[in-house]
Amino acid sequence: MTTAPQTIGSRARPNPLAKLWGSLSLVFESRIGTIGFFMVAFWFALALISIVWTPYDPNASLFGQNLPPNAENWLGTDHLGRDLLSRLMQGTQVILVKTRLPNGWVIPIGVALWGVLGSLTLGTLLGLNAGYRGGWTDQIIMQIQDALIAFPRIVLYLVVIAAMGQGDLVVILAITLTGAPGVARLARSLALDIKTRDYIRAAETRGESPWYIMFVEILPNARGPLIVDAMLRVGYAIFAIGTLGFLGIGLPPPDPDWGNMVNEARRFIYTNPLAVLWPSLAIATLVIGLNLFADGLREETTRYQK
């Protein structure tokens, strides 16, 4: 995984983005990984396109109600006469490329990704501390983590949303809270393994602080499994967002939500059964794509470790 050999004494480090790409590009070595990458890339591309162009206004009732697919509306229309293709495209945005703040501002990167980033941050923070420091810190962190894992996810989502109301940030918080214990467990086991290495001894002898050792020595060496895990978590997050949308407590309007689209379409399933199919397929392909991508990545990163 190392790139060009470094000359001794040079302080130049590879740029972190290039490093990340270095580990991600491995995925093209694997066939299923490549398939997964293109499935995910397809939805990302669609999300980016939908920012500048959708066939019609996704929230405008321009056509007849519950139309089957036709030349004008490629995927048909919903119960309010809105174009399903436009809504499907627009629905990708909130998941993957934008997050709406309560004051009306929009920040880049979607809810699913922010949620996973959140759980990754919180989880590695807890997990590295538990694994590297050990002792009481470990006991306490593991106990908190056990308590969080004991909550059935859906109960935690329901309780958080019931307590704080609907909104993009609340969904991000819910995903962060449910994801963090899993990440912490993984990060802890990685830290337990890595802290026995000689370079950690060396850093301790140099007198580096525990935080330096955790985040500069241990974390970069634990990144492979964490990245693979994060990919799977994005899938779970999209799943969770869909489920919440279906139950009617997910991402708020006006942006269409795939889960909510399924819920609306199932009420008209006699007249327009295909309307249920499109958002379902969208969720399934995106999640399968992420799964394949993660599988491919794992296959390639662990290939030489056996």
Binding site: R266, I269, V276, N291
Partner: peptide
């Protein structure tokens, strides 16, 4: 990778 609600709706269909 298929959410529960999708499976349920298709089985109903």
């Amino acid at each position: 990778a298929t959410p529960e609600f999708v499976t349920g709706v298709f089985l109903i269909l």
